[in-house]
Design a protein around this nucleic acid. Structure first.
Length: 281
DNA sequence: CATCATGTTATAAT
DNA sequence: CATTATAACATGAT
């Protein structure tokens, strides 16, 4: 449970996995102790649903004897590079987790992939199996990786990218659109709520109803929140400031850190949404 | 036992 | 065809 966020409630601590942009960046680094090491053995989970159509059976032969060379994160995607031009893509889904365990670790019920080095067991664990592992062989990274648009924290993230999303989907609620990884890679449920709360915009606002001047505001807020989250959660799992919605939105009964009025939590297009009906009326 | 979960995707509907 | 809406996926915590 070491890698899970601990969150205080009235009577207990609860473990919560939260695989959005900054959390993914944090998890990416968990395998770092294995960098430069040779993979001595590969364990595959017999069910391995997380491989979904990938030739998982080929992995042990491909990776045994290979060297773990580098890791990258982009939005909610991770990419691990090995020698022999082998690449391993990883998405944490809803409950995925990377672990670096002792080299004698016996694979658990939800450990879908374990790479054993001399000193560590690099593990991908995912109880709900909404996560995904992908295999690629080649000199360059796979297309699904290279073709992703810039993430919101990146220098290359442009107001034009925001404008395209808003104009192409004018009837979608802003909250729903912000979760679309084709335009905003890495933005997940808490980040989308945070962005709209900081902008004081109602989550259900149709994307097409914003004036052009608002596109700039949205672009700026996306960048600010992404960069701040990467600098805190992404580095040390530290919480963002208490003045953000972040710490107040996880359960019913929370209060707006700006106006102290009760927050609303409700379903919006199939996802939990939290907002301040006063600030974001 | 019932409800809910911070993600994605196939399919249906507009 | 482009966009939008919904259900399904699997498991664990409360």
């Amino acid at each position: 449970m070491k890698c899970m966020r601990l969150r205080f409630s009235a009577h207990c601590y609860a473990a919560v996995p939260m695989p959005e942009l900054a959390e993914v960046e944090y998890y990416r680094k968990i395998w770092d102790p294995g960098l430069g090491s040779k993979i001595l053995r590969v364990h595959l989970h017999p069910r391995a649903r997380v491989f979904r159509g990938e030739p998982a059976e080929s992995l042990p032969a491909a990776l045994t004897g290979a060297t773990f060379q580098a890791s990258h994160a982009h939005g909610k995607q991770m990419l691990f590079a090995f020698s022999r031009r082998i690449w391993l893509g990883c998405h944490l889904g809803m409950s995925g987790e990377m672990l670096c365990l002792p080299p004698d670790h016996a694979p658990g019920k939800h450990d879908h992939l374990v790479l054993y080095t001399r000193t560590a067991a690099l593990t991908f664990r995912d109880p709900r199996m909404f996560g995904r592992l992908r295999i690629h062989e080649g000199k360059s990274p796979p297309a699904w990786w290279s073709e992703m648009p810039p993430a919101a924290g990146s220098q290359n993230f442009t107001p034009a990218q925001v404008r395209t999303a808003l104009t192409r989907h004018p009837r979608l609620p802003l909250k729903t659109l912000l979760l679309d990884q084709r335009y905003f890679p890495g933005i997940g449920n808490w980040m989308a709520d945070e962005i709209l709360w900081q902008l004081r915009w109602a989550p259900a606002t149709p994307a097409g109803s914003l004036p052009p001047s608002a596109h700039t505001h949205l672009h700026r807020t996306l960048q600010k929140i992404s960069r701040h989250a990467l600098a805190t959660i992404g580095q040390t799992w530290a919480d963002p400031p208490k003045s953000w919605l972040f710490l107040h939105r996880w359960r019913d009964g929370g209060h707006c850190p700006r106006c102290s009025n009760p927050l609303t939590r409700a379903d919006l297009r199939g996802r939990t949404c939290c907002w301040c009906p006063d600030c974001q009326g």
